[in-house]
Design a protein around this nucleic acid. Structure first.
Lengths: 215, 215, 215, 215
DNA sequence: GATGAATGAGCATTCATTCAT
DNA sequence: GATGAATGAATGCTCATTCAT
C-alpha cells in the first residue's frame, strides 16, 4: 500500500547563483559556530541566524545539522589529502641521492610541509577528529581519505626501496601516516607546552632512523 | 529574598553501603549505555532505568550526565596510567645490558604490555577520546594522567641515558607516549584491516632504531 | 499606510489555453496525490511538483490547498449527481406498469445503475466523504447536490404515487437516497468481504418491499 | 550493530492515582478540543494547556495526538457497541409472537433505543466517522466493533427465522446495521431539516416490511 | 505569466531537572 | 533516602505563502 510519495523531503541542490551563495553562507556560518561552540552545542536555528537566512532555508539545503558537518568535513579532508599528498611529492624527490643527509633533508621538508599544511582552526579540527570517532558515516569519509594518503606513502616507499630500510611498506606507510598526523595534531590542536620544534626534531629523527639506510 | 539558598544542589557522596551500591549501579549502567549508543545519545532517564533506580536517585548521586562520564573517565584513566606505568617498570629493566638485542627485547615487552593493557570496550574508548577532544574538563583529566606517564618515560630515559641515542628526553618521552598510544588505539579501536602484528612489528622497529644505540 | 492593498491576493481565472492546461495539470496532480496519500498529508509543494509547475504557479490558480479540493469535489459531485439522476430517469420508466415484477425490475436497474456509476478511486472517495464531514464549506456542496438527487427521487415518487406504498414522499426520498448511497459506498469504498451481489440483492429486496404495492 | 536501545520512548501506563487522573484530564481536554475545532486543527500543546498539564506530561501518556484519538475512539466504540447490542436484546424479545404488530412494536423499540443511544456530541462524532475513513488503524477499530454488532443482529435473525422473511441473514444483518446507523447518523450528526420522527417512521416501515412476514 | 528561492510562524517532540509523596 | 510524575524550555523540522528575478 505504500505509495511513491513516502519520499523523504530531499535537500535542494542549488544551481542558480543565489542558491549557491546561500548554501555557502550556511556552510560558513556552521563552520564558524562549530569552531566556536562545538558541533553538539550548535543548533540549526543558530546556524541559520548566523548565516542571515531563515530556518527554512537551512532545511532547504541540508536535511539536518549533521549533513552540514559532513559537507564541511568532506571538503576539509579532500583539501587536506591534497595538501598532504603534495607535501610528499616535493620536487626535491627527483634529486634524491643515496646518501643519508639527502634523505634526512627530504624528510625534514616533508614534515615541515605537513606541519604547514595543518592551518585549520584547532577547535574545529578537534570537532572533526572527535566526530570521526563518534560517527560511522564521518569515520568512513576519513578512512577513505586516509587510504589515499597511505597509498601515496606506499608508492614513495616502493619507488625508493633501495634507499630505505623498510620491508613491510604497507604497514610502514600506515605507521608513518598515523605517527606524523598524531604528532602534528598534538602540536597544532592540543597546544603542547613544549616548543613545536623540539617535538618536530625528535619526530624527524625518529622517522629518519626508521626509514633511512645509514650510510 | 534568595540568599544562601542560591547554593547549587549538591550531589550526595554516599558513605553507607546501600548508597555505594546504588552509585555503582548507576555508573555501570552509564558505562554500558555510553558504549552502546554513545554519550550524547544517552540520557539520564535511560541511565536510571538501566540501573534500576528512579530518575531522582540519579540526581542524588550526580548533578548531571557529564559528572557520571567524568567519574567513569577518571577511573578509567587512573587505571590505565597505572597499567601503562607498570608496563614500563618491567622487572627485566634491572637486567638491562648495553647490547642492542637486550634493548630490543625490552621494548618488545613494553609494547606488548601496552597492547595487552588496552582491553577496554572500543566503542567506549572512542567516546572517551572524543570527549577529551570536546570537553576542557575531561581534557584536563587526560592531560594530568598523560603527564604521569610521560614523567615515567622520562625517568626511564634518564636512568638509561648511556644506552640511548635520545638527547631531548622530555620531547622523546612525549613522542614515544603519543606514538605508542596512537598506534595501539589505531589497532584496538579503529579496527585496522591489517594484522595487528605487522603494525606492532614496525612500531617496535621504529622505536628501537630511534632509541637504541646500535651495538 | 496599508489601505486598499489589504485586498487578498486573488487567484487567477485562466482564460487562455495555456492557463487552462496548467490549471488542469494542477487539478490532476492534486487528485492523484489526494488519492494516494490523503488530503491532509499532501502539500502544495508536492502538488506543484507532481503537476510539473512551479510552486508559485500553484498559487496563481488557487489561493490554497483547500480550493483545489473544492474544485475537485465540486466537479466530482456535479458529475455524480448527473449520473445518479440519469440512473433514475431510465427509459424503462415509461414502460412502468402496475405490477410488482415490473417495479422490481425497474428498481433492480436503478440500483445497478447507481452501482455502476460509482467508479471513482475508493481512496479518493473516502477523502471526499471525510471532508464533507470535516468541512462546512464542502458539506454545503454535498448538501446542494444531495438536494437535487432527493428532488429527483421525490418527483419519481410523485409521478408513480399510485403504484407506491410511500406516503411521506419527501422523507422516503431522503431515506432511499441515503440508504442506497450508504450501501453502495460500503461495497465500493469499504471493501466488504461479502460478495457485492448478496448485499445488493438484499438492498433491492428491501427497497422493493418498502416502495412497491404488492400485487 | 543496532543495539537494544533503539527503543522508541514508550508512553507511560499510569498505575498510581495521580497518573490516572492526569491521563483522564488529557483525554477529556482532547475530546473537548476535537469536538470544538476538529482533530486536525487541534495540537498537542493545546490539549496539554486545556488539560492544565505541561506539554511533557502529554507525551508521557501518549506518543502523539493520534494515540489520544485512538484511545477516545476505542472507548467510544466499545461503549456504543454495548449500548447498541443491548438495544437489540430488549426484554420484549422473549414475548415475541408470530404476529406482525408485535414484530413492528419490537422494531420500533429497537430503532428508538438506537436513536437514544446516539447521544455523543455531533461534531465529535463527525470527526470519528471521518477518521474511520481516513485512517486504517482507526478503521480497524470500527470494523472490529461493527463485527460484534453484525454478529448480534445475525443471531437475532437466526433465533427468529420462522417469523422473518430474510434468507441471507448475514447480508441482511450488514444491511440493517449500515442502514440504521446511516439514518440515525444523518439525523443526529448531519442535522437534517426534517423532523426526526418522519425519517424514523419511514425507516421503521422499511425495516418492518423487509423483515417481517406479513400476518 | 512562470519560476523557485526565501521566509518564518507553527507544531511535534525531547529531556534535564525538580519536588511532592 | 527513594520514587517517578510533572515540568517547560529548548530544538528539530515542516509548509503555506510571498516575491524578486
Amino acid at each position: 500500500m505504500k505509495t511513491i510519495s513516502e519520499q523523504k523531503h530531499q535537500a535542494r541542490t542549488p544551481v542558480q547563483k543565489r542558491g549557491m551563495e546561500t548554501k555557502k553562507k550556511i556552510i560558513e556560518a556552521a563552520e564558524a559556530l562549530f569552531a566556536e561552540k562545538g558541533y553538539h552545542k550548535t543548533n540549526a536555528l543558530e546556524i541559520a541566524a548566523r548565516a542571515g537566512v531563515a530556518t527554512g532555508s537551512f532545511y532547504s539545503y541540508f536535511n539536518n545539522k549533521k549533513e552540514v558537518l559532513i559537507e564541511i568535513i568532506r571538503n576539509f579532508y579532500a583539501a587536506a589529502t591534497e595538501k598532504v599528498i603534495n607535501s610528499y611529492n616535493l620536487e626535491e624527490r627527483d634529486n634524491i641521492t643515496d646518501n643519508y643527509r639527502e634523505g634526512k633533508k627530504l624528510i625534514h621538508h616533508m614534515i615541515k610541509a605537513l606541519y604547514e599544511a595543518h592551518t585549520i582552526n584547532p577547535s574545529l579540527h578537534r570537532e572533526f577528529i572527535a566526530m570521526v570517532l563518534l560517527d560511522k558515516e564521518i569515520e568512513a569519509i576519513s578512512r577513505e581519505e586516509d587510504k589515499k594518503v597511505i597509498a601515496a606513502i606506499t608508492s614513495i616507499f616502493n619507488a625508493f626501496s633501495e634507499h630505505s630500510r623498510v620491508k613491510d611498506t604497507e604497514a610502514a606507510a600506515i605507521l608513518l601516516h598515523r605517527v606524523s598526523e598524531e604528532i602534528i595534531h598534538y602540536i597544532r590542536i592540543m597546544g603542547s607546552d613544549m616548543e613545536d620544534n623540539r617535538l618536530l626534531a625528535e619526530l624527524e629523527d625518529m622517522i629518519c632512523r626508521y626509514i633511512l639506510v645509514e650510510g
